[in-house]
Design a binder for these strands. Structure first.
Length: 444
DNA sequence: TTTTGAGTTGTTCGA
DNA sequence: GTCGAACAACTCAAA
């Protein structure tokens, strides 16, 4: 009999419970990935994000001796199952609302060919839904969630499955054009190397340096986690109790907390967790939005972040909060506009972390930022890019300004001489406007 | 059962 | 220039 293993957000072969289960089933296993499974449709993603996915497939295919078939959409998988008389489709469980809706739909479609969908263990150290309060309800605040989460044993990494059961690839009309990803570093081996490099050189300073936009102080594992090139359990198994390691463990736990929140509140992928915020007054303007997207707001720290996203398909975590706060609190846009842009452009896009990160900033999420906490983009720049190096790296129009002066071009008589745009709004005014709008939805 | 204090990521204002 | 206070409402756990 022939069965399929369906790769989605789990593009690895080590510590892979669902793949192990498929390979141990006794069936011949056809290995399949589908392009439209990491958020928006593949064709709607930025070029850089498409190529990032191609790079991950390329490396996965290499580690599978070429035995990987890449299809365009899950519908193609259903058609394949029908034409080949596939017995079962094995897959990792999905917990985000996009993912589990997709699996449910495929499970239904596969019934026409009497093919079963078999869900294995997913890509979390502690699967969403497992951590509960003593009364059985889920947590809505991070710290108590973490205190319970950290007590649970994620188990030890499992061995690699026996790939001798894998079948050769089959013809696919979808051309993933993997050659376009040449030069992009990705894949499981690279993820494990990234982890080792982080543990060897940066984790000790992580607590202090992770917020510095001008320093590569973060783990750089978000892409690998997003594509499932590494299992979080593998990461946790390598962490001790140093201060940097403890702070980093908490970051892993944030990913799991947001996945848990989304599992219990699937509509919050696009809806307000706090429904009161749906009643607030918002603005929207295409041209203003285009300026935010392209990094032309006139606030250097915001623009540097947005240009980093376009150039690298990645943005420093601290800067994500700054640009998000600017869109939501200074421009008064609904957070969903920004979340969508991030989805299209971030190579490390994760549905739960993205939606709930945005909701936290907007003040409508779990453990929400207090309403009065509005980021000042200039002050944030001076604090987390004190020498202006980050800003100058992404904004050539500020290259003539030295040190921290790059954060305040309006203070320099030649600040705008290289064409940097003037500020599109006045931060102090818009901060007050934002507080007024929040005041209006306060419960009496 | 009720109360109390703390809770990822901040800024402004007045002394 | 530095420093403390003030800026909601709600969730959760411990007292």
């Amino acid at each position: 009999m022939v069965s399929v293993f369906w790769f989605r957000r789990d593009l690895r072969i080590k510590d892979h419970p669902a793949l192990f289960q498929a390979l141990a089933s006794g069936d011949e296993i056809l290995l399949v990935a589908t392009a439209d499974t990491l958020g928006a449709r593949f064709s709607e993603l930025s070029t850089i994000r498409q190529n990032s996915l191609r790079a991950s497939w390329r490396e996965l295919k290499k580690s599978l001796s070429g035995k990987l078939t890449i299809l365009e959409s899950p519908k193609d998988l259903v058609a394949l199952a029908q034409s080949m008389g596939i017995r079962s489709v094995y897959v990792s469980s999905a917990f985000d609302s996009q993912g589990f809706k997709e699996l449910a739909a495929i499970e239904r479609d596969l019934q026409s060919s009497e093919t079963k969908l078999i869900r294995g263990e997913g890509n979390y150290a502690v699967s969403p839904g497992r951590v509960r309060k003593s009364d059985g309800t889920p947590y809505r605040v991070y710290t108590p969630f973490f205190n319970e989460w950290v007590k649970l044993d994620p188990g030890t990494p499992i061995p690699e499955g026996n790939l001798s059961a894998a079948m050769p690839e089959v013809e696919s009309s979808f051309n993933a054009r993997l050659e376009l990803s040449v030069g992009i570093l990705a894949g499981e081996e690279y993820a494990l190397k990234t982890l080792e490099r982080f543990l060897d050189s940066r984790v000790d300073a992580y607590a202090d340096m992770r917020n510095r936009a001008d320093v590569g102080g973060t783990s750089h594992l978000s892409h690998a986690l997003s594509h499932g090139e590494i299992h979080p359990r593998t990461i946790l198994s390598r962490l001790g109790n140093g201060s940097g390691e403890s702070v980093f463990r908490k970051e892993i736990a944030w990913r799991e907390f947001y996945a848990d929140v989304m599992w219990h509140n699937p509509e919050t992928l696009t809806d307000y967790l706090n429904p009161k915020f749906a009643e607030m007054k918002y603005d929207f303007d295409e041209q203003i939005f285009a300026k935010w997207c392209s990094g032309q707001t006139g606030y250097p720290m915001v623009d540097a972040g947005m240009r980093q996203l376009l150039q690298d398909g990645w943005m420093h975590n601290r800067v994500r909060m700054i640009v998000a706060s600017f869109l939501v609190k200074d421009l008064h846009f609904e957070w969903q506009h920004g979340a969508k842009w991030f989805e299209q452009n971030l190579t490390d896009f994760d549905p739960a972390s993205n939606s709930h990160g945005w909701q936290w900033t907007a003040g409508c999420g779990t453990d929400a930022s207090p309403y009065y906490r509005v980021f000042n983009p200039v002050m944030q720049g001076l604090k987390f890019d004190p020498n202006g190096d980050y800003v100058r790296k992404y904004i050539p129009e500020l290259s003539h300004l030295t040190g921290a002066n790059a954060h305040e071009p309006w203070e320099d008589p030649h600040g705008y001489s290289k064409g940097y745009p003037k500020r599109i709004v006045d931060h102090a005014e818009e901060r007050n406007e934002s507080l007024r709008r929040l005041e209006a939805i306060k419960t009496a």
